[in-house]
Design a binder for these strands. Structure first.
Lengths: 340, 340
DNA sequence: GTGAAAGCGCTAACAT
DNA sequence: ATGTTAGCGCTTTCAC
């Protein structure tokens, strides 16, 4: 059998409670006693039983990551960050893909949350924006941290994110700076607030440069490769096409590349293409994508840390944690060969 | 407060134990009693406490997925399959990325396993092949199912996988059938047994067709995009180059595409490229990749099911579960324009 | 077919 | 600074 806390206590010649104190780094233990207990625990290869801990206290040493199938790369990065933060503090991460059909919280989700023995939940877009979720979480009393939520949500609960508007502005400014005047823009999924913010950034930078943006240069996508393809097909249909396309994520930018390839439009000579996210995909396609590096990994680890540290439990207002971004220039963008 | 089993028992007018029986689908309960209990549980919105369950019994309702950073897409697919199977049976999935430096099991891993309160573990390549792991798992008495393990491991423990040799043969035969005679092959990471099997399949199909494979047509990669790039650069260096390249996974095939793009070698006109896995990447790059569809998602769900059903606990020999594959022909392959 | 009692391994609250 | 006593919510004997 594996050793229990009483075994350790016996070997160390102290009480159960003292062992517990040492294990949980609580005060009121002599350095000497502490050492003795640690030695005993090591000797018996003692590992605390998480179920017992979870039952006796309310700490479960478990966090959950809820996601609604955005890009696999995006989730993988969040997950990597979160597991890293968890590992350092003895926590584990449970992953829960959930589909929220037409924005309706399902009973399924409520049931899931009620029986999920976790100390906190990380929410990814578009889940991070769902107002109805706040009530559900408050109801089951589980702290949560939304990643990249809307301005509205940001005001209510601690969150982590980045400055999508500024990032989109910077990319647009860069495209303008190398000579583009006619730039197409592919919008992300409407239920992600980042979509609106990025569009806002694009428009504001265009306006600031005195550049006009006709209606037909703005197309609605949903962050999927397929949607990017459909938008690119429209944007690249006739002779009157933009000299650059800025897509709201890398998947859609890859789709633009794919459509351009099929139409024998050379990138970046005849068309510049920019993405957003800097997922692994960006470096792996040809030509490699100019994009915005989002600190996705960090978002995951910071969200996990906030939950573990109990930041979300304080009543004070915690300002949203905004992480840095960078613009990454690769081979998919260049000055335009022709003026439109 | 959330309702407990005693609340349900009181409301249903039965004992705790009877409620427990109903919840766990145990026999010896009248249909009538069963209904009454279920009604009471529903009314109180009762959710069993997993920590308490885990403490009282040995069932934790938790499975773990251990992985050592192969492609994000690959892990995402396994994870999707596993979570799906878990959801259906009231289980949850804990994810644990682990690095196993130069094939050495670390104490860190042992400690992790000892304190991880799970009913079973899913192992992905290259972890699935590590002989030392068997001892560790036997030691901590946690059942595990390796995905795509070596022949050696297959003989010892229940596992899920596919027929890598036949799949590689089929792809090679397809390339030969459309006219290729000079085919380059990029091998996967040496510590993945699938790498050897795929190479074996390639060579055997070439031999069966009476085709010679010079040494310089076989290059060693490691499944990463970068390694694929290095191999492609060698393969495509001079005028004496193959008319087709078969890479052992999609990431490396994408790298071949990328190098070809840079060198202005047109795919599939001047060069055919085939991959293996059919990850999301394959359909997203230009041109879309001819590849082998691996049932990765299914592998994840079958592995989870085996663990949940306790298949791995029986002493009988369970034959490895071999799942079907398909060859997916897309635009990256075509008959060769020139004969080499 | 059903129930009563005894823990599972740990921590919380209260001694000492 | 350390120990004692109760549980946490459930499943497991073993009675009935």
């Amino acid at each position: 059998m594996t050793a229990t806390i009483t075994d350790v206590a016996r070997l160390a010649g102290v009480s159960m409670k003292t062992v517990s104190r040492v294990l949980n780094n609580e005060p009121n233990v002599t350095a000497k006693t502490r050492e003795r207990v640690q030695a005993a625990a090591a000797e018996l290869r003692y590992r605390p039983n998480l179920s017992a801990r979870g039952l006796a206290s309310s700490r479960k040493f478990l966090l959950a990551l809820l996601y609604d199938n955005p890009s696999a790369e995006y989730i993988a990065a969040i997950q990597a960050g979160a597991t890293e933060a968890c590992r350092k503090r003895g926590f584990h991460l449970v992953v829960e893909p959930i589909r929220v059909p037409n924005g309706e919280i399902t009973t399924e989700l409520e049931v899931l949350l009620q029986r999920l023995p976790v100390d906190g939940v990380i929410l990814t877009p578009p889940l991070s924006d769902m107002n109805a979720l706040k009530d559900v979480f408050d109801d089951v009393k589980i702290p949560y941290v939304p990643i990249a939520p809307s301005e509205e949500t940001k005001a209510k609960v601690p969150s982590v994110g980045m400055d999508d508007i500024t990032a989109a502005e910077e990319m647009t400014q860069y495209l303008i700076s190398i000579g583009h005047k006619d730039i197409g823009f592919i919008v992300g999924a409407p239920d992600h607030s980042a979509s609106h913010l990025r569009k806002t950034g694009f428009l504001s930078a265009m306006k600031a440069a005195g550049l006009d943006v006709p209606q037909n240069r703005i197309l609605q996508g949903d962050f999927s490769f397929e949607s990017g393809k459909a938008c690119a097909q429209k944007l690249l249909a006739g002779a009157d096409r933009p000299t650059a396309i800025f897509a709201s994520n890398d998947d859609m930018a890859a789709a633009v590349l794919s459509v351009a390839g099929k139409k024998n439009i050379s990138v970046p000579n005849d068309l510049s293409v920019a993405g957003f996210d800097d997922t692994a995909l960006a470096g792996v396609i040809w030509p490699p994508l100019t994009t915005i590096r989002q600190p996705i990994h960090d978002m995951g680890s910071r969200a996990a840390r906030m939950l573990i540290n109990g930041v979300t439990k304080t009543t004070e207002d915690i300002p949203p944690l905004m992480l840095e971004h960078n613009i990454i220039v690769r081979a998919s963008t260049a000055p335009p060969a022709r003026q439109s």
